[in-house]
Simulated scan of single mutants.
Amino acid sequence: MSLCQLLSILEVFHIADGIEKARLLPRFIQVMEKNILLIMVIMLEEIQSKPVVCAQFFLWNILDLLRYPHELLCVMERPSISMLWLRYSLWIPLYILSVANEGVTVYQAMPYMEPSASSSAYIHLPFLLMLYLSLLTVGASLTVWQLLKERKHHLEKRFKRKKKK
């Protein structure tokens, strides 16, 4: 899973090269957020066996299964109304669940991070994780707001085009 997630960095290059039509900064932040979670939290042996990690992988994969077929059909210029609806409707509650689960994962990892924090460091790792959780909450709120705007835009555009035909 770690290798697959690290390869997701290619998504950023696909956007930069114009292969995929998406905003670069939000996707970059999303990819880096997932990679940070994998590197900082899930690599801890004590956390790997927790159910929240399995749930996180499941949610990430479901989100990708909703996004990638839609993107592929758009690249092939064969967009599907059902894939469009799934991508922009089902994706939002799943994203919220994923972020909430990610917060629980980070929270559950905090007790295991304390012993590994350097005593000479001015800022302990659990403090940084609390800051991360705060930023995650703000970022997720902005992302959901943006997803709702995108959903309205794409679905209205698609249904207007369908009515004209």
Rank of each mutant, 00 (worst) to 15 (best):
S120Q: 10
P26C: 05
S116N: 11
R78A: 12
S82C: 08
S82E: 11
E156D: 13
M1Q: 13
I47W: 01
R27L: 15
E11A: 11
A109T: 05
I123G: 06
L72M: 12
R161M: 09
L37T: 12
S116T: 14
W91G: 06
G139W: 00
K34R: 13
H70N: 10
Q5M: 10
E77F: 00
E45K: 15
K162N: 07
L136T: 11
M83K: 06
L59I: 03
S116A: 11
L155P: 02
Q30E: 10
Q5V: 13
A121T: 03
I9Q: 07
G103S: 04
L24P: 01
E33F: 14
M32W: 08
E45D: 15
L142H: 12
P79V: 03
T143Q: 14
M32P: 00
S118P: 05
S49K: 12
W91D: 15
K160M: 10
M32L: 14
L128N: 04
P26I: 09
Q56V: 03
C74W: 03
I39V: 11
Q108T: 06
S141I: 07
L133Y: 14
S49A: 12
L37S: 06
S89D: 03
A109V: 05
L135N: 09
K164S: 12
K34W: 13
I123M: 11
K50H: 09
Y107G: 11
D64R: 09
N101Q: 03
E77T: 09
E71D: 08
E71S: 13
S141P: 05
N35M: 11
I29E: 03
K162C: 06
S2W: 12
F28E: 00
Q146L: 13
L128G: 01
I96D: 01
H154G: 00
S119I: 11
L73N: 09
K157T: 11
L94K: 01
Y68C: 00
Y112H: 13
V41P: 01
I62Y: 04
F28Q: 01
I92H: 01
M113I: 15
Y95E: 05
L3Y: 12
S116W: 14
E150F: 15
R158W: 08
W85P: 02
F159T: 08
I123P: 02
P79N: 05
T143V: 06
S134I: 10
Y68M: 00
F57K: 05
C74V: 12
F57G: 10
T105N: 08
L3R: 07
H153R: 13
M43S: 14
S89R: 09
L128A: 06
L136A: 10
L90T: 07
Y122H: 05
Q30F: 12
S49W: 09
M43G: 07
